[in-house]
Each structure stands twice: as C-alpha cells, then as structure tokens.
Computed example of a mutant assay.
Amino acid sequence: MATRHCLALDLHDDPETIAAYRRWHAPGGPPAAVTESIRRAGILDMQIWLTGPRLFMIMETGPDFSPEAKAAADAADADVQAWEALMGKFQKALPWAAPGEKWTPAEQIFSLAEQP
C-alpha cells in the first residue's frame, strides 16, 4: 500500500521567477538523473501543484521509502545537488518551517473516507 506525503513550499513572489520554475518542471525539464533518483528512492508518484507563489507537493511512496535514505542518496549525487542548488534560487521556506527545512510537511485534517 502506498503512503501519501503532502508538503508545501513558497517561490519568490515574482512572475518571472514563477514562470521559470514552471518551465523547469515541464515534461523533460528536470534532468533525467533527478527523476531517476526520485524513482529509485521508492517514490511511486510525485506531483507539484502551484497557486500564486505557493507550491504543494503530493508524493505517493512505496513501503521501502525512507526520507533519511533519500536525503543521504541525494547528498551523494552531484546531479541532484546541482538541481537542488538551481531550484533553491527560486524557492523560499515557509515562515513556520523548521531551520534548514525546505519542503514543509502538511498535516491532514480531513478525509472524506472517514466521514459518516
């Protein structure tokens, strides 16, 4: 069974920055090494949604996914580090993010499936 992770992050609130970020995330935009590292980590699906300058990432992960293992693999991968440095120019942490936190986890507070 897959596990869903929902995270949020802001972009710098500038139309040119947001347009460039969109272009980098269009099909074929991210380097193949980056998308391969995502899949290798056990991430089954990943979507990024945008409203204004706010991003929402929805990830579906398999049972073997480990955020710690993904972070360690990313830290050792020069291609992923180059991508993260490039994307860091567009992104800014949410005001309530923990120090050093980039994507901030969201808390699920409603599920239709749990409603009578």
Rank of each mutant, 00 (worst) to 15 (best):
A2V: 15
T3A: 11
R4V: 14
H5Y: 15
H5E: 07
C6Q: 12
C6W: 14
L7Y: 12
A8W: 00
L9H: 11
D10S: 09
D14S: 01
P15S: 03
E16C: 03
A20T: 13
Y21P: 07
Y21N: 06
R22H: 08
R22Q: 13
R22G: 06
R23C: 03
R23A: 13
W24S: 12
H25C: 11
H25N: 15
P27K: 01
P27M: 03
P27N: 04
P27A: 04
G28I: 03
G28K: 01
G28W: 00
P31D: 11
A32C: 05
A32L: 11
A33E: 13
A33C: 08
A33S: 07
V34N: 04
T35D: 13
E36N: 09
E36C: 02
S37A: 15
S37K: 13
I38C: 03
I38G: 00
G42W: 00
L44D: 10
D45E: 07
M46I: 03
Q47T: 02
Q47E: 15
Q47A: 08
I48V: 15
L50R: 14
T51L: 13
P53H: 06
R54F: 02
L55I: 03
F56M: 15
I58V: 15
G62C: 05
D64F: 10
S66C: 08
P67H: 06
P67C: 05
E68I: 04
A69I: 11
K70I: 05
A73C: 04
A75L: 08
A75W: 06
D77I: 04
A78Q: 09
A78R: 06
D79C: 04
D79E: 12
D79G: 10
A82W: 10
A82P: 00
W83G: 04
E84R: 09
L86V: 04
L86R: 13
G88E: 06
G88V: 13
K92D: 06
A93P: 02
A93R: 14
A93H: 05
L94E: 09
P95M: 08
A97H: 08
G100R: 02
G100Y: 10
E101C: 02
K102Q: 07
T104F: 02
T104W: 04
T104M: 11
P105R: 00
P105Q: 05
A106S: 09
E107F: 02
E107D: 14
Q108L: 13
Q108R: 15
I109Y: 15
F110P: 08
F110T: 10
F110A: 08
S111A: 13
L112R: 05
L112Y: 09
E114K: 12
Q115M: 14
Q115Y: 13
Q115E: 10
P116D: 10
